[in-house]
Every structure is written in C-alpha cells, then in structure tokens.
Design a protein around this nucleic acid. Structure first.
Lengths: 200, 200
DNA sequence: TCGGTTCTCCGTACATAGTTAGGAGTTTCG
DNA sequence: CGAAACTCCTAACTATGTACGGAGAACCGA
C-alpha cells in the first residue's frame, strides 16, 4: 500500500508534461493556424526534440485529438457555469453569444472542433463523446425552454455555426455579428413558437 | 499582323494545359481532401513531374487561388442561370437549395471557398473580387424581393453557410438538411417581413 | 544496497512535401 | 539557319511526420 504514492508522482509528472505539450500546441495553433502546427515547434517550446513527444502522444493526430477533447470539455464547462434566467429569449441569446465568443476567440480551435479539415484526422470515440455530450446539454436546455424536437436543435446549431464561421471569416473582433446573433435568436424563437402553435 | 495566329496557338495550348492541371487538382482534392492535394500527384495525373507545374503556376497556392476563382465563377454562373419566379419564399428556397447542393457536392471546394483553413493562403484580389461579385448578385436578388439592407444579407449568408457546413460535417448525402433549409427560409422570410412592418 | 526494468529524452535517419537551379529538347520567329 | 522562348526533365535543398536504437535516470523487488 505504500508503493502507490511513488507511482502517482511519476504519472503525475507525466500528466503535467502532457499538459505542457498541449498548452504549447494551443499557442502555436493560435499563432500559426491549425495546419501550421509543427511537432518540432511544439517540442522546442517545451524544451525537447520532436521525436521525444512520442513518449507522450502516439502521433500528431493524437495531439489534435487531445486538443479536440479539451476544446469540447471547455465549452461544456462554460455552458455548465452559465447563469440562466428561464426566459427563453434571454437564455437563447446568452448561449449563442457565449458560443460566438468562444468560437471567435480561437479560430483554430473552432476549426478543429467543428470542421473536418485535417486530412486523415478523425476524433477518437472518447473525444467525440464529449462533443455529443455538449450537444446533449444544448438539447436539454432547449427542452427546458419547451423546445424539444430534433429539428429545432439542428436549426439552432446550424445558425450558430454559420454565425461563428462568418464572423471568423469576415470580421474577427467586430461586434457586428454579436448583434446579428441577437437578432437571429429573436427570429429563431418567434419561428419555433409559431411552428408550435400551428402544429397543435 | 500574320504573326498572331501562331502566338495564339501557343497560348491556347498553354491555357488548355492549365485547365488540365486544374481538373486534375479538383479530382484529387475531391478524393483526398483539400489539404491532401499534392503537387506530385497532380503532376502524375497530367503526365508530368512536379517541378514542371511551375511552368504554369507560380506555386501551390497559385493553384489553390485558381481553384478558388473557378469555384466562385461556377457558383455565380449557377445563380445566374437559375430560373426565378418572383415569389420571395420560392426564390429564397431555390437559391438556398442550390447553394446547399453546390456546397455539399464538393466539400473540398466549399472549404476552399468559404473557410480560411490553408495556412498562408489568401485569395488574390482578382479572385476575391469574384466572391464579392457573387455576394453582390445575392444582394441584388434580395433587393428585388424587397429585402435590401445589409443586415438581412449577413443573416442569410450566415444561415446558408451554417446549413452547408453542418450538412457536410454530419450528414453528407442525406436530405435532412435540405428540408431544414426550406424551413429556415420560411423562418427567415417571416422574420424579415415582420421586421419590415415594425420598422416603418 | 544492488541488478533489472521502465521511462525519458536524444541523435540519426527515412519518406514525403514544396520548391529551386540548371540543362536538354522542341517550337517559334526573324 | 540561328537566336529566343518555352516546356519538361533530373538533381537537390529544406521542412515535415515518424521509426529506430541507445544513454541515462528513476523505480522496484530482493
């Protein structure tokens, strides 16, 4: 029973180094673009040579996978901590605003999380599960607002993805799209309400 | 004055070879992904070695640029040939449907045209002008339907881009997003009409 | 405390990528 | 015909992801 702390210290150090590598990778991806990420650059940033990274990640794709998972974990976390009012319009607006800020704050991250753009890369099932979990949370929130069918969720995610990618492509930093996002949510809510009453 | 036909024959051949190269590039991009495009593969497909391509394009980015321009030219053409009824809802639906089909038919092309994802690549001013021209046509069409402010155009392009990227990422081939696109256009039109009457 | 195992990290090396340089062979034109 | 231009080649340089094998430290059971 006394042997364990030492093993912990070892795996703990290992975990710390993995984090260090991922942090370096994020920095470079932010600066050089997702595809501009280089193992040699990452290695240099953490004081290693490129091949040494293979002690921590099986491949470059494995690094992307870990980043993919981190991204969705952080978004999930952010959604979880977000204060909600219970007013549909206000809550829809804040969720969309949060998503927009999150996405445009790091275009490389958005690209990694939402666009299949790296040839040969596919997130592992475990990482993908995090993305699904995030979608499930959104579904749950929508349901709490009384909007619980699948089409509605698809529509909302499409709008959000579109706003984010347009802002990233055309006007990173501006607030033009933030205001547009508010308008979009008004439109969205009115539509769903309307569909709801005409369905009954 | 008689020297010109021969020069023409030469530049014509050159132009044909450029087309051949671009066709090969599209094929490979469709099959391997945009970033999976390789000069050596392109060269092989047209019966050359990689360095020979430099007689026709200054760099790989120059090939991407020509493809970018071709993509927007084709979309512009498609929009131009599209029959319009004058009914706002019907026309909005067909334009969005066309954009969706066009985009999902070749995800690599969509990525090249709409997402800044290749590190270091930026379209030349001439190529970019084609993209702007395409946006101008959409603006014009919207105006013809009585919807002529900039916000409306932004909102529409965001919706369209979102629908396309979601379909590409989640369900290429299915018609789930086509139907969603119709619904989105109903929502969009109702919203704009509503905003219009409450503005006056 | 010692000997073996495991874990890091290194240097080297290989395949593939975009790209450059320089030179043959062909075509064009005076 | 001879010069110029064009096309295509081979060879080679650099940067990339990755495989291999080894040196040294950390760890663990005896």
């Amino acid at each position: 029973m006394y042997g364990e702390p030492k093993r912990d210290r070892k795996t703990e150090r290992r975990e710390r180094t993995r984090e260090e590598i991922l942090d370096a990778a994020w920095e470079i991806a932010r600066a050089e673009g997702l595809a501009g990420l280089t193992l040699r650059d990452v290695a240099q940033r953490v004081g290693m040579r490129a091949p040494s990274l293979y002690s921590y990640f099986a491949s470059k794709h494995a690094i992307y996978d870990a980043m993919f998972a981190q991204g969705w974990r952080r978004l999930l976390e952010g959604y979880g901590e977000m204060p909600l009012t219970g007013h549909p319009l206000a809550d829809l607006k804040s969720m969309t605003r949060y998503f927009l800020e999150f996405s445009t704050a790091d275009p490389a991250r958005f690209q990694l999380m939402n666009q299949r753009t790296i040839p040969g890369f596919e997130p592992s099932p475990e990482s993908y599960a995090l993305a699904v979990k995030c979608l499930d949370l959104a579904r749950e929130r929508l349901a709490a607002l009384g909007l619980d069918d699948e089409r509605t969720l698809d529509l909302l995610t499409a709008i959000n993805a579109g706003l984010a990618s347009q802002q990233i492509a055309n006007d990173p930093g501006g607030d033009r799209w933030t205001r547009l996002a508010d308008e979009a949510m008004e439109m969205f809510l009115a539509h769903v309400k309307n569909r709801r009453t005409s369905d009954e």
